[in-house]
Amino acid sequence: MNAAHQQTPHHGESGHHPGHGHGGHHEPGDRHQAEILDLDAEVLSEHIASITAWLPLKNRPRRIVDLGCGTGAGTFALLGRFPDAHVTAVDASAGHLQLLREKACARGAEGRVRTVQADLDSDSWPDLGRPELVWASASMHHLANPDRALRNVRGLLAPTGLFAVVELAAFPRFLPAGAPGSRPGLEERAHAATDSFHAGHVPHRGADWGPMLTAAGFTVEDERTITVNIEGARSEAVGRYAYASLQRIRGVAAPALGPGDLAALDELLDSNSPNCVLRRKDLAIRTERTVWAARRA
């Protein structure tokens, strides 16, 4: 299905926009976004696995739909958690779906994955079967009309099936308090600038999905907030994740930052600088993720 809207950059988020497509080729923004999604999957793999293990399922699902699947972080976590299941992975980006298929082949899982390119903001969705589990991670808040999408999920979900909505409470922070030394508080000021932008462009970011799920005909069975705090010493990927994320934040925050803040941010992103985040040993990933587990009322 074709996307209904023009794609815009993802505004400093590691999430992906399931309602905007890229056509059949890899655009530069598509590749950058894919890099962040892959890093997100790498550094947060333990947290994703803990969420899939927590899900209050009545039976082990055999048919799963991953809405706004990106490059497959949730898809492969779910395949690992449920070895007898098949996953239908849905996204608007042909490039992301191609990467997901390549990963499935490399892991010998191509027979367990079906990819569907679709705009989740469309009036009508393609046939996604009758899944026992629908998973939507960091995707629903990007939709222009999430209420309609929630009703669509209710319509396709099996009678005893579970709908899991996973959302970031806030975009991750990476720098310690007081860093960088030349401009303490820079990261928070950059986030404040992006928050102002998001308020107008991504109004459902940070929303409480409980009331929206109830209004769409679901009963919220459980809700859980997971605190993420991963020290950079545990994985060199933390530095790469911070670098890619701060690059994206800069693209949105730059017009609102003063010259001193912008220069300090550019130094953090200068791979030739000794102060580049790729060289810092004091980074950490700090954020929260909230999960809503719901069933058809």
Rank of each mutant, 00 (worst) to 15 (best):
G260S: 07
A41W: 06
G29E: 11
I226R: 01
A49Y: 04
E167L: 08
E42P: 13
I36F: 13
A199G: 10
A106F: 10
H26G: 15
D208P: 09
E223R: 13
L162R: 12
D195T: 07
P131K: 11
D261S: 11
L157Y: 05
W135C: 13
G206Y: 00
A244I: 03
A104T: 09
A242N: 10
A106D: 13
L99P: 06
P18R: 08
R279I: 05
V202Y: 03
L156Q: 14
A237C: 09
I51K: 03
S235D: 11
D195R: 09
Q7T: 14
S271F: 01
H32W: 11
G29A: 13
V220A: 05
E223F: 02
F76H: 04
R279T: 06
E46V: 09
R189I: 10
E102M: 05
D66H: 08
A297C: 09
E288A: 08
G239T: 12
L100A: 03
A118I: 01
P83L: 02
F218K: 00
S50Y: 01
P83W: 02
L37V: 08
R112L: 12
P56R: 09
P184W: 01
E167V: 12
E110R: 02
M140A: 15
D30L: 02
G19I: 08
L213P: 02
F171M: 15
K58L: 04
R189K: 07
K103I: 08
H32E: 15
L55K: 04
L39K: 07
S45H: 11
V166F: 06
H16Y: 00
V252K: 03
P83I: 00
R205A: 14
D127Y: 09
F163C: 06
G258R: 00
S235I: 04
S271K: 07
E167I: 06
S196C: 12
A253F: 02
G178I: 14
H11N: 14
